[in-house]
């Protein structure tokens, strides 16, 4: 399969890339890892007139900690996330999630920024970002703006990124002591989109009371979903079996999956509940061990 003809640009600076995006308007698409865009172009679901390859722009793939915030450059590859010692220290969830994204070759190309900017609720990182309380930096001609992850996803393939803008960085608050996080998805085969996926981050005080909870759901809603009622069922209380079951029940009630080859709506709700329960327990284990 061959994509439709397009003009290829490989700017060496962010300013140049933004200028090109402004010049070409909605005829242009940004190319990062390319493992969503290129398949869509080959299938002719997307036929951009201009492809702006941002891979040659330096400084967009660093992973570093500064003043209580972990900064991840938008061009950090899945393989970089998988092997980052800094991320492993605070966020073992990245080892959980990257292992389940596609396969090693795709993870050598695919980027975190691209995974989010694609705006697909079937992608795995959106739920993780929701659980971790991330924000994203979007850069345009007028400078950069920080958008909380809860205000980032608008709809299917639609995000807060406006014409002439590029997602350049992801920021994660360094979690407090006593925090654990975990992700799992049910998939039919290695590398498949999730039947359902659940990301959880919990902070548990020395008195056993849950002080913070983040729960994000993959592919069971038109947009990546924060399971707000499930979080509320946990915060301010000890982590009892009863509260965990309640959180699981709320998530399965509050999501809005559609039936497809991966299962019926009821099945997906059920799986979501099971995964919420398991990921809460796994995150809690890691919180205790931290």
């Amino acid at each position: 399969m061959i994509a439709q003809s397009f003009q290829y640009e490989s700017p060496g600076t962010l300013a140049e890339a933004i200028a090109l995006l402004n010049q070409y308007g909605d005829e242009a698409k940004v190319l990062s890892g390319g493992h969503s865009l290129i398949p869509m172009m080959k299938l002719r679901f997307a036929s951009p007139g201009y492809v702006i390859d941002i891979n040659g722009i330096p400084g967009l793939s660093d992973i570093k900690e500064e003043n209580g915030v972990v900064h991840i450059g938008a061009l950090a590859r899945e393989a970089d996330l998988e092997h980052s010692a800094l991320l492993a220290k605070y966020f073992p969830i990245f080892k959980d999630v990257t292992k389940l994204i596609a396969d090693p070759q795709v993870r050598n190309m695919g980027t975190l920024g691209g995974n989010l900017a694609h705006g697909d609720a079937a992608n795995d990182h959106p739920a993780v970002m929701i659980a971790l309380g991330a924000s994203v930096i979007i850069t345009g001609a007028d400078g950069e703006r920080e958008v909380p992850i809860d205000e980032f996803f608008y709809g299917f393939y639609m995000t807060a990124i406006q014409q002439g803008e590029i997602l350049t960085e992801i920021r994660l608050p360094v979690p407090a002591a006593g925090t654990g996080n975990a992700y799992h998805k049910l998939e039919r085969k290695v590398g498949d989109y999730a039947t359902s996926g659940v990301a959880v981050q919990l902070t548990i005080g020395s008195d056993g009371i849950v002080t913070a909870a983040g729960i994000g759901l993959t592919n069971v809603n038109p947009v990546p979903l924060r399971a707000t009622r499930s979080e509320e069922a946990l915060v301010g209380k000890p982590l009892t079996e009863e509260n965990i079951l309640l959180a699981a029940q709320y998530a399965s009630e509050d999501c809005n999956p559609s039936a497809d080859l991966r299962g019926s709506e009821d099945y997906k709700r059920h799986v979501t509940g099971v995964l919420v329960k398991r990921m809460i327990k796994k995150a809690a284990e890691r919180a205790m061990a931290s």
């Binding site: 390319g34 493992h35 290129i38 070759q105 050598n108």
Partner: peptide
């Protein structure tokens, strides 16, 4: 379609699927 891996090569030492790279 980047599923089967038959087209895997090394690009700067990293294995990638050359059907999904320009």
């Amino acid at each position: 379609t980047s599923s089967c891996g038959a087209c895997t090569i090394l690009l700067d030492g990293k294995s990638i699927k050359s059907c999904t790279v320009l």
